[in-house]
Simulated assay, not measured.
Amino acid sequence: MSSHGKVPWSTGLCDCNEDTGNCFLTCFCPCISFGRIAEIADEGSFSCGACCALYVLVHLLTSRLGAVLLSCVYRRKLKKQYNLEGNDCTDFCLHLWCSPCATCQEYRELQHQGFDLTKGWDGNVGKRRAGVEMAPGVQKGMNR
């Protein structure tokens, strides 16, 4: 834990080596990754589809800058919810110059927190209410 009581992100910005599916999704269709993150960060207030549509609309109306700012809002929410390190200036720079990497890191952080982002908020809350323990991430490949 840092001296300010903030905890580091569970993965680094460029730790995509075991996360290729998320990386491809984020690079080729960032609105879906954003939608999944936003649905969890908003605790199901808005669906993945609605957040995805908002991202696309903002991107179309404002060019890339609006999508960068929108992504920063959700990175800030995640930092607040999980007491993560970082500041608003760094977040803006990350999403401006390396948005796919920042989005992938946010996605991985939510997975680390026990969420299956493909199931959305309701799918994750339903599991937790039923008392089903969230499975930790499984390494790919055979290990002994």
Rank of each mutant, 00 (worst) to 15 (best):
S3V: 10
H4V: 09
V7I: 09
W9H: 04
S10N: 05
S10Y: 00
S10L: 05
T11V: 07
C14W: 14
D15A: 13
G21D: 13
C23F: 14
F24K: 09
F24N: 07
C27V: 12
C27R: 10
F28L: 02
F28G: 15
S33F: 08
G35W: 00
R36M: 10
R36C: 02
A38D: 01
E39M: 03
I40H: 00
A41S: 10
D42M: 08
E43M: 09
E43A: 12
E43Q: 11
E43P: 03
G44D: 02
S45F: 10
S45M: 13
A50G: 08
A50C: 09
C51P: 05
A53V: 04
V56S: 09
V56W: 06
L57Q: 05
V58N: 05
V58P: 04
V58D: 01
L60Q: 08
L60V: 08
L61E: 03
R64H: 14
L65C: 13
L65N: 03
L65G: 08
L69E: 04
C72K: 00
K77N: 11
K80F: 14
Q81S: 12
Y82S: 10
E85T: 12
G86N: 09
N87P: 05
C89W: 15
T90G: 13
D91Y: 03
C93E: 06
W97V: 15
C98M: 10
C98P: 02
S99V: 00
P100A: 00
P100L: 01
P100V: 02
C101Q: 08
A102F: 00
T103N: 11
C104D: 07
E106V: 04
E106D: 08
Y107N: 07
Y107C: 09
H112C: 06
Q113R: 12
Q113K: 11
G114C: 00
G114D: 03
F115A: 03
F115D: 02
L117G: 01
G120C: 05
G120Q: 00
W121N: 06
D122I: 08
K127S: 14
R129L: 15
R129S: 09
A130R: 15
M134W: 12
M134N: 13
G137W: 11
G137P: 10
M142C: 12
N143V: 15
